[in-house]
């Protein structure tokens, strides 16, 4: 049985705003029948202020789909359309005090219905950009389609790299067999074979290999690499900041949801890989807590 929070149960057993809004002027219909979810969101928007005056939902779906729909309507009532468009699926999940990883797609459906309804009100055509696959990593709710696309887009060739880019496989590691199978398949498309023993490809993209960077240029490049990673972390309510650089050691502060996260070590490795690739030299990324008087204690 699913480990649903009390809030999920409450919104399932007593859904708010169920049914269609009578004189709706914004309608969003999204879902996927094959995965058993469909949602029709109806809004009444005040044309003068673009404020959502009433919201109603009709959902074909499981307990968490109904609860997510109920939560969505509660969240957006009274918001302007622009404010409502900032509601993320994470906000819906947070409102419900969390959803099981297998059920996160229910909250995604809520956000998409909202986007579709706003597009409908504005006379635009909403296009869904996301395709959903079978759930592979249950610790971090990563599906097969995302893993495949990430492997293709970034030329990944190892389970470790997949974990760094998608988080998949960073928890209990039970899905590593599944990730290896995806790697085997995607690499075969490119005429390559998956070799579990192979080292990650040499990081030589920066073109700076051999040419030593000046100290300032080197610091800038490290800063740059970290800046590039931050949006990914922020998406998961986390963040990272550069604290100090001491020779080969780069010290960072993990903040927000990253602090104390069971993935912190993996995240650090991902940051390290990125910096190493950009810099063209090996550095070690360490948490700022590991920055004592002598830095070679690791």
């Amino acid at each position: 049985m699913w480990d649903y929070s009390e809030t999920v149960k409450e919104h399932f057993f007593n859904p708010r705003n169920a049914g269609a809004v009578a004189d709706a002027n914004a309608i969003g219909e999204v879902g996927s029948l094959s995965c058993g979810d469909a949602l029709r969101l109806t809004l009444k928007v005040d044309p003068a202020t673009d404020t959502i005056q009433a919201a109603g939902f009709q959902t074909f779906g499981c307990g968490s789909a109904i609860a997510s729909s109920s939560a969505l309507t509660e969240l957006i009532k009274g918001m302007t359309l622009d404010q409502a468009l900032h509601v993320s699926n994470q906000d819906i999940a947070d409102f419900l005090e969390g959803l099981p990883p297998e059920k996160m797609h229910c909250s995604v459906m809520g956000r998409e219905a909202l986007q579709a309804a706003v597009a409908n009100y504005r006379g635009e055509v909403w296009q869904d950009d996301h395709e959903e696959g079978a759930l592979v990593c249950k610790c971090f709710a990563v599906d097969a389609v995302l893993i495949e696309e990430t492997i293709r887009a970034n030329g990944l060739s190892s389970v470790e790299a997949v974990t760094h880019y998608t988080k998949a496989g960073g928890g209990c590691s039970a899905c590593h067999e599944g990730i290896e199978e995806i790697l085997t398949r995607v690499l075969a498309e490119q005429g390559k074979t998956f070799d579990p023993a192979a080292a990650p490809p040499p990081a030589d993209k920066s073109g700076s290999a051999g040419a030593r960077l000046g100290t300032l240029a080197r610091i800038r490049r490290i800063e740059h690499a970290i800046e590039a990673i931050r949006p990914n972390l922020q998406r998961d309510h986390g963040d990272v900041e550069l604290v100090d650089i001491d020779g080969k050691n780069v010290f960072v502060n993990m903040t927000g949801a990253c602090a104390g996260c069971q993935m912190a070590t993996t995240t650090l490795e991902g940051i390290q890989q990125r910096i190493v690739e950009d810099l063209g030299e090996f550095v070690r990324v360490l948490p700022a807590q590991a920055m004592p008087q002598t830095t070679n204690n690791q």
């Binding site: 996927s32 094959s34 995965c35 058993g36 979810d37 779906g61 499981c62 307990g63 968490s64 789909a65 099981p100 297998e102 059920k103 797609h105 959903e132 696959g133 079978a134 759930l135 249950k138």
Partner: peptide, 11 residues
């Protein structure tokens, strides 16, 4: 036999 009881996406 629904998808959601098993955690898969398919019924």
């Amino acid at each position: 036999g629904s998808a959601c009881t098993s955690g898969s996406l398919e019924p």
